[in-house]
Amino acid sequence: MSRIGRKPINIPTGVDVKVDGSVVTVKGPKGTLTHSFHPNMAISVEGNELIVTRPNDEKENKALHGLTRTLLHNMVVGVTEGFKKELEVNGVGYRVQKQGKNLVMNLGYSHQVIVPEVDGITIEVPSANKITILGADKQQVGQFAAEVREKRLPEPYKGKGIRYVGEHVRHKEGKAGKGAKK
């Protein structure tokens, strides 16, 4: 049996979980998340725990078991604590600022790059070269962070661009034949 799939999910106080067939709605202090799961997975609320069971040991059901449990756990964590992705901007003259609901970035282009805030996502700019993306839906936070990072990917020669905090970008050596010309 799936080691992850068989673990029960603890439902903290202040969180309301409704199971309607294969559609699960989780309400908490940070918002409401709804997700529809594969109909083979049986999701039930027993006391203050969510339990996911599978009908048999077919390969597809084994794979869905752990996935369903992890997605449900992420929903519960999202509505209680929320998720956060941090990005840092490196480069001379590269900076970011928040104007109203928009993220305005100077990334070395001839124009400013403007990214509007999406529903369910909050953008914070603690300093001129840091971006913090917050939200209840883990997948949405990660996708939005990837889209912001995509505006100027970190390049391998000088390391300029937008990267995740803690991300390591492998640097390449520049041109090798600097003084070899005769």
Rank of each mutant, 00 (worst) to 15 (best):
K181T: 11
G5A: 02
N56T: 13
I51D: 00
R3W: 11
F37W: 07
L64S: 03
H171E: 12
T80W: 04
G166A: 07
F144S: 04
G166S: 05
I121S: 08
V165R: 03
I4T: 11
P55H: 06
H168V: 14
G5L: 01
K7R: 15
D137L: 09
N10T: 12
I162T: 01
E86I: 04
H168T: 12
H38I: 03
L71T: 10
V125K: 01
G120R: 10
L64I: 03
P116D: 06
P29A: 10
G91I: 06
L50G: 08
V141L: 08
G91D: 02
I51P: 03
V118P: 07
E124L: 14
K158M: 01
K27W: 02
A128V: 12
P29G: 07
I43P: 02
L50D: 05
N90F: 02
Y164S: 04
A128Y: 11
G179I: 09
V45K: 04
L153T: 04
E124P: 00
E58K: 12
K7T: 12
K182A: 13
K98S: 06
G78D: 07
I9R: 02
V26S: 01
P39D: 13
I4C: 04
L103F: 03
T80C: 05
I43R: 05
P55A: 05
V23T: 15
K130Q: 14
P154R: 01
I162V: 08
G142D: 14
I133Q: 04
E150F: 11
T70E: 10
I43T: 06
H111M: 06
G14M: 07
A180G: 13
H171Y: 12
G66Q: 04
